[in-house]
Design a protein around this nucleic acid. Structure first.
Lengths: 261, 261
DNA sequence: GTATCATTGTTACAAATTGATACAATGACT
DNA sequence: AGTCATTGTATCAATTTGTAACAATGATAC
């Protein structure tokens, strides 16, 4: 744990002598005031929809990955940067889904607790204690390609099963809920498969993804008929597995037809 | 036109001696920095979808009504206030549809031009010249109940037919486009009728509204079957009009069933 | 008063989509 | 070879949607 040494950083009014944190805080004047970003990062593995959560050091506080927007940075790029910092991935599917901006959207007590966990004492006029609006983005990523990485304030950055999510700090619970709701609503219009699935997959895996997102069962044969009717999949070789049954085909997305208008 | 008298307003760095404007500018420190709101206000009249536009004084610049967010004001309330200031209406249907926030979303030349139209010379470090992100809301209002009112910077606040909209300042063209796109997308889920139509209306008027928003014709009998099947309308008396044909029924929305889940 | 006409409310039927079920094919295991 | 779970496909019913027709009605023209 850091020992605060009461050096007063002119621009940021917090106390720390850790060089990483110092850099972090001193960069703040370059950011767009009042605005933050929160990312709901969805991954799919083991027939489960999962999201990436940070756990703050020396606390039991879980949070969505988030960050601020640099003055010379597009909103979308800031979200992509946050995502890249937590997963190592680039060129990821991102969708802005809502802005959260209640007048009492400030969380003084929690911010103090979180920073205390990293040995930082926030002064009363620290910018973190101001009101922020937060722009929500959700990302769909290929689970196996991501390398979750905690930030300087967190112990861990780990996947959580969607129906085993701990309660989150701030208003992150409702941000997550809204993200999930938007994902479900967009499921028929936006092509979510290529982002969440590996290169090749079976029809059963594809159906499981839909069922997991929608939270309901789909009749197998009807699903197959519908999906194949969209001509978005290319059928590949038979999969040779150890299952005591007929081997399923493998499919991949047909890039010629897989994009919808 | 105002004669700038070079009084320097400490907090706002613009030059004017008009008391209204002075109050306007001096209120700025209470606003949430970097964030603005733009409202696309839809009305429906004469079988046409219309939007409300401001025209800046002594310019040919048209703009969506917009404003800033007070520090102690919810985003939604700020949008409702902007709407109220331009139309006199309260308790209006409002939907947040997107946030626009490119890094080069700053419009120095246009801002100078707009303010010059009101006799104001903006200093180089005026807050208006900073980067702003803008949260887009669209509103659906009852055309006949609105009283369009220009603000201090504009000549006029008038309805414009959607297919006769002049080119707009800033990125307001693309904001309008996105609003319209979202409205169309939401048409099946959100109940837009009660907001755009008068208390009572004929089925034909209702269908015209849908056709206007979607930009395509709908088969009459199918529309009637579908709408009546939703049980959201109550049938009232026959309408007695001068039409040389069968008199249509009047309908109103059935408040018991008119809200969808 | 009667004929005409445009529009409305309703019905009838075809086409398409969706839901539910059945069945043959397959590949590993016993 | 027989069993078994799962897959790919076909079949038929139920529902929804597309298209067209038809009778009802209320003004106008004669």
């Amino acid at each position: 744990m850091y020992k605060p040494n009461f050096i007063h950083l002119l621009l940021t009014f917090c106390m720390t002598d850790n060089p990483d944190l110092k850099e972090f805080w001193e960069a703040r004047p370059l950011m767009l005031p009042s605005v933050s970003i929160d990312c709901v990062i969805f991954g799919y593995y083991d027939n489960q929809l999962k999201i990436l959560l940070l756990k703050y050091k020396n606390t039991d506080c879980y949070a969505l990955p988030g960050g601020f927007i640099n003055q010379d940075e597009n909103l979308e790029d800031a979200a992509a940067r946050v995502l890249n910092e937590r997963t190592g991935l680039k060129d990821i599917y991102l969708e802005q889904f809502y802005v959260f901006g209640d007048k009492d959207r400030r969380f003084d007590a929690t911010h103090h607790k979180l920073m205390n966990g990293s040995g930082i004492i926030l002064k009363a006029d620290h910018f973190l204690l101001n009101r922020f609006i937060s722009i929500g983005y959700y990302a769909l990523i290929n689970f196996s390609k991501a390398t979750p990485m905690p930030d300087v304030f967190s112990d861990s950055c780990t996947w959580h099963d969607l129906n085993l999510v701990p309660s989150l700090i701030f208003d992150h619970d409702s941000i997550l809920e809204k993200a999930l709701h938007t994902l479900r609503k967009n499921l028929d219009e936006k092509l979510i498969g290529p982002n969440l699935l590996p290169e090749t997959f079976t029809m059963n895996e594809f159906q499981n993804l839909y069922e997991t997102i929608l939270g309901e069962k789909i009749a197998r044969s009807n699903f197959q008929r519908k999906i194949l009717g969209l001509h978005m999949l290319k059928r590949l070789d038979k999969k040779i597995t150890g299952g005591a049954h007929k081997a399923p085909y493998l499919y991949c997305f047909d890039t010629k037809t897989a994009s919808k208008p």
